[in-house]
Structure formats: structure tokens, C-alpha cells
Design a protein around this nucleic acid. Sequence first.
DNA 1: GTAAGACGATAACATTTGTTATCAAATCCA
DNA 2: TGGATTTGATAACAAATGTTATCGTCTTAC
Lengths: 191, 191
Amino acid sequence: MLFTFKDRFPQLNPYWEKYTALQQRVEYPAKTTLLREGKIAQNYYFVEKGCLRVWFDNHEKDTTFQFFFENEGVSSLESFSKNIPSAFSIETIEPSVIQILSKAVFNEMLTELGQNPDFLLALMSISFDRQRHYMNEFLSRIRDTPQQRYMNLLAERPHIVKRVPQHYIASYLGVTSVHLSRIKNQLARKK
Amino acid sequence: MLFTFKDRFPQLNPYWEKYTALQQRVEYPAKTTLLREGKIAQNYYFVEKGCLRVWFDNHEKDTTFQFFFENEGVSSLESFSKNIPSAFSIETIEPSVIQILSKAVFNEMLTELGQNPDFLLALMSISFDRQRHYMNEFLSRIRDTPQQRYMNLLAERPHIVKRVPQHYIASYLGVTSVHLSRIKNQLARKK
DNA sequence: GTAAGACGATAACATTTGTTATCAAATCCA
DNA sequence: TGGATTTGATAACAAATGTTATCGTCTTAC
């Protein structure tokens, strides 16, 4: 699945710095697809400025399941490492500045660091964290009403609600944008 | 999460046989709780005869997310190995004969086999399989309508529909038993 | 600067699913 | 065996959510 590297394991930062130099820095306009569902991931993307969303095609509608902002990184780890088609797409929401780490550089990194226990432990830990993250995402979809999910988002990650257009929020909550409008209306009324 | 051992890795069966001897064999009536959500798992359960369901409390309702039949084994691996409260309950559906592997024996096993790469690889592989399994379960809940989920179940695991009471099937599909009746009615009509 | 498109609110209506209640059949158990 | 419980179907109604359409405002692109 997805993974995020930088600053999660400070002991790895020296290594990271070395490979940071090998990254490409690219500016993309809004709504640019970086990775298309069904394609094989070739890069790891690190957000310097702007924001991304990760989504999959759900019978013609789209289901967003994560947003990424400055200083967060993302790839389809499964696709990236096993050369299998990605289960989701990654695209920019705002015009964004992205640092790209290519698979070639990543593989070089793996070769060099693959024997380093810190590195392997970091990889595993990242992998487990992501598993837990997605498990909780999905559980929340089953347990909570869209309204509860929206209130959680407001309380815990208000920056998302501020920066992301409402129909993507709706797609993340699992409802239509019309219904999200209703939810906001109800909440405003209650106050 | 849950995990299943036996026969998935034939190369481990010799080891398994040894510990099989240390299992307890217990008969339980129907609807007996083996592990209660919130408690710390003390055992691994292997179904010799009968069937189990795994479920969690979802705002007073129950959400079933897996069934286990003969020759399948289950525990809350996270709870079991990290001594944290289990996220779900395990209970019998039919009167069942269960083989119990205690945590003490499991730990002994770990000590003895923890250096065996086959064993470690097997553990990791089992863990990844389960992750994928639950990911797909949850994805199916988001992507598919209850009717599609029911048809999948009929097509892919008809034994479940045959043996498990309908309200558990409904809880597994994520609908009320009343609605499952409606779904069955619609499907019958179409034929 | 202006036209086109994106975004968000709202209304009217449709569809899906839940809730409660009732009934009949099957099963359990004492 | 016979009463209690479980299981499953169905009806009537309620609640949640989707669909389509309209409108006003705000952005974006040229």
C-alpha cells in the first residue's frame, strides 16, 4: 500500500538526504494524474507544496480514501515493489510541486540499505502503520454515519475541510456532494 | 489479526504435529463465546467440528466479518501476541468441537521455531494474506450493494449460506435480516 | 476582461434500507 | 410430547441517501 518515509524515522534521515539529491522536482497543475489505477507505479511522490488525493474507481463513481499535503509522501507500495497494477489513482488537487523518487533510485536504495536492520524495521513499521490506518478508515465507514465522519474530520483534520473542494470531501465520506450539503446544513441549524 | 496455520505450509506440518499433541479438545454448545471483545486473547482455536463467527460490536448492533468451519483456525493475533484487548468476539454458531492451543504452548513454539526461516516466512505470509483478505472484505462493503454481496456469497461460498442462520448472514452483509429477506425475494422473483 | 467551467446550495422526487409488528414454520429442550 | 424459543417472511411506515435539475457565485483560461 502507500507509505511515507521522511521524518518518521530520524535515524534514517542521513540516508534519506543522500537520495533526496537524486529526486526530480516537478510542478504540476491542479487535477493532474500522477499515477493511474491499473498502471504500474514507477515513482514515489513527495509533496513539497500543494495537495494530492488517492482514489479508486467504484463503478464509475470515485471513492477518495486519502489526502496528502506538504511534507507527506505517497506511492502504491504494492504496485511499486511487486510490479503489479495499482489499485488506485493519485492526482493533484491544487497546483503542486512534487519531488519524484524513481523506482531505479529506490531499488538502489534497497540494495544499499537492505541489510540495515533499522531500515528494514522502518519499512515493516511503516507497512503496519498503513495497514492499521486503512483498517480504521474502512471500519469508520462501516461504523459511523456520514455525519459523524464529517464531524470527525472537522474536529481532527480541519485543514482538509478548508483546502479540499467539497465534492472530494463527499467522495471521501462516501456520500454525494448533495448529501454533504445537507449534512452541513443540518449541523449549521443545530448550532 | 486472525490467522490460520495448519496445512497452509506443509513444510511446517512436522512441527505442527508436535504441538497438536499439546492441544486441549473441548466441546461447546451453540452460541458460546470463546473470546470476548475487549478481553485479551489467551488461546488459538482450531475447529474440529462445527462453526464459529467473528464479530464486533457496532453501536449495539453486531457486525460479523468472518465465519470459520471444520479445519480452520482462528485467534486475535494482535491481542494474542501483544497482550492488547481484542477488537472482536469469537463465538460458536453450531455446537462445536474445538481444539485449543494455549498462549503458553504458542510461546514455547515461538521460542523453538523463532529462528526457523520457514516458520518466520510462514508467519509473515499468513499475516499478509489476512491483511489482503480484510482489505477485500472492507472494499467489497464499499463497492458492492448488499444484493451483489449476497450473490457473491452464494456463488463463492454456498456452504456458508447453507449452514449459517440468516441473521448472521445479514450481519455479515451489512444489512438487517428483514432486508436480506427482501433481497432473497427479489432474486427469486427474477429467476 | 470575459466566457466557460467549477463549485456549492437547494428543491423535488426516487430508491434503498431500517424499524416495528405480526405470523407461520422449524427447532430446541425439559 | 408440548410449550418456548428461534428463525424467516412479509407488510406498513419511517429515515437516510441518491438523482436530477436549477441557480448564483467564484475561478480559471485565454
